[in-house]
Structure formats: structure tokens, C-alpha cells
Amino acid sequence: MSREIYAYKCRKCGHLHYPYRMVCRNCGENEHNEFDQVPLPKRGKLLTWTRAYSLPADFEVPSLGLGIVELENGIRITGQLRVDDPKIGMDVRGEVEIVRREGYDERYGMIFYEA
């Protein structure tokens, strides 16, 4: 099953949002469901990152890479980062994969790799 993460484009002014919100942050004019879903581009540049060691109990790993990426269309997204030697500004590509397991629930999100 292919999965996608979407940005939300205001039908009134065209402003792109990620994540979803119910009223446009730019024009303040629209209402629920007045957004078009636009698939997020998968490539972008790493804006900042961390390697975290003190993790919530759902994560049975010693550490976790996390980053904020500026995608090709200018939208920013927070995701997991699987890069050995991350550098601010480096090119990365994202894949939608399982990012968290909560009991039997699998949660999908964006994981970034070196482009």
C-alpha cells in the first residue's frame, strides 16, 4: 500500500500548509474542507537536526536521528533522519515509512536519507 503525506492548499488564496489546519493562516478566509491535498515533494535540504538519546518508551533503539527539512516547494517538515554524518544544508530525500509502533498500531511518517 503506498502512503503519502500531504500539504494542504487553500482554495481561496493558494497558500500551502503543513500540517493541516482548519482555517488558512494566510488569508484567514476558508472553512473546513476548503483545502486541496497536495502530495509533499520528497526532496529537500536539511535545515537542522539532532540525535536524541532520551526517547519515549515506544522507541526501542539507543538513539534516534531527527531533522527539519525544507522541501523543494519551500514547505518545511519534521521527520526522522537516517544519515550517518548530517550537515546543515545537505540534500536529503524522504520515504514514507513506519516511524512509530504503539502496541499493535503502526504510524507512518517521513524518514529522510542522504540524497
Partner: peptide, 18 residues
């Protein structure tokens, strides 16, 4: 957009610090 990835307050602060 944040919580599901394992984002915590220390990791948000860390990315900001960098």
C-alpha cells in the same frame, strides 16, 4: 507532525540550538 516521530522537548530545543 512531531509527536509520532519520537520528537520530545529536548529534541526540539536541540534542533533550535544547532
Amino acid at each position: 507532525a512531531e509527536y509520532i516521530y519520537g520528537v520530545t522537548l529536548p529534541s526540539l530545543a536541540a534542533m533550535f540550538t544547532r
